[in-house]
Structures are given as structure tokens and as C-alpha cells.
């Protein structure tokens, strides 16, 4: 089953906090492939997919950050009208619920990638594969 490792980092809502995380990743030569920041009144949750998850996790651990690993589905679809709608329909018909999703650029400028957080990742992978949607793996991400 194709899954991708996402790191969610708890970031206090103070100036410079996000910059500190980025600086830490830069110093450890970690490249971010995809990113989304969910913000609340008091804190943010920074979700990232990186080229070398192990190195990023070690750096965050040493830096004293609170973070969590979640397996998510990452898909690549053609960059044309109606493609995302098709994917969402497939998931909807199978009653897979989407918690959140965010877009990122993949290897080709003719395709676009999405990180999709679902409630049932096994079912999601299965139905997407069955319908010919390309799922990315951690290896694909690191080789991008």
C-alpha cells in the first residue's frame, strides 16, 4: 500500500516560531516537498512532507519540538480541469472521509500532487489504485 510520511509540528503562535523550524530544517539540509499550516488562536500545526523524514525527525527531536507522524495518501493527477473532482468522487462514493488536503508541485509541470488525509487510509489507497489514480510513495517523494 502506497503511503507517505507526514510530520505535524506543534508551533506556538509567537513571532519567529515558524522561521525557527525552517532554519532548523535548513541547517539539517532537509528539503520540504509539501507544506500546509493550520492555524488556531493559540498555536499552529505545521504539516510537512520532506525528502528525508528520518533526518527531519531527528533534528526536530533534538530541537525539543512536539511533533507527530501521520501516514497520508499522496496522489499525482494531470493538471487539467475536473481531475480533482474525479478523485473526490471516487472517495465519496466509497464513503471515505477527507480530514484535509493540500496541493504541492510534483516532478512534472503537467501534473499536480495532493497530500490527502483520510479517515480510512487502506480503503482510500485501494479504491484510488483500482481507479487508476497514481499514488506516490516515500521513495517517490525523496527522489523528486
Amino acid at each position: 500500500m502506497a503511503q507517505v510520511r507526514q510530520i505535524s509540528v506543534f508551533v506556538d503562535n509567537f513571532p519567529n516560531r515558524l522561521a525557527e523550524v525552517m532554519k532548523l530544517l535548513k541547517e539539517n539540509k532537509v528539503n520540504i516537498r509539501a507544506l500546509s499550516l493550520a492555524d488556531t488562536r493559540d498555536f499552529g500545526i505545521l504539516r510537512i512532507i520532506v525528502n528525508d523524514s528520518e533526518r527531519a525527525e531527528n533534528a526536530l527531536e533534538k530541537g525539543g519540538y512536539a511533533f507527530k507522524i501521520t501516514e497520508i495518501v499522496a496522489i499525482t493527477i494531470p493538471d487539467s480541469a475536473g481531475q480533482l473532482s474525479r478523485v473526490l468522487d471516487i472517495l465519496g462514493q466509497e464513503s471515505v472521509n477527507i480530514e484535509y488536503l493540500y496541493a504541492f508541485t510534483g516532478k512534472s509541470d503537467k501534473a499536480v500532487s495532493f497530500a490527502v488525509r483520510v479517515d480510512d487510509i487502506e480503503k482510500a489507497s485501494e479504491v484510488l489504485t483500482a481507479n487508476g489514480v497514481i499514488l506516490l510513495t516515500d521513495k517517490d517523494i525523496s527522489e523528486m
Binding site: 505535524s8 488556531t40 507527530k68 488525509r117
Partner: peptide, 13 residues
């Protein structure tokens, strides 16, 4: 925050 309860979902937090 309790690190065991960290979630990637904002609504949980």
C-alpha cells in the same frame, strides 16, 4: 500540551 495527545487535526487540538 501533552505530546501523546498531539494530533495533525486542528479540531482535535
Amino acid at each position: 500540551m501533552n505530546i501523546q495527545q498531539l494530533s495533525d487535526k486542528v479540531k482535535d487540538m
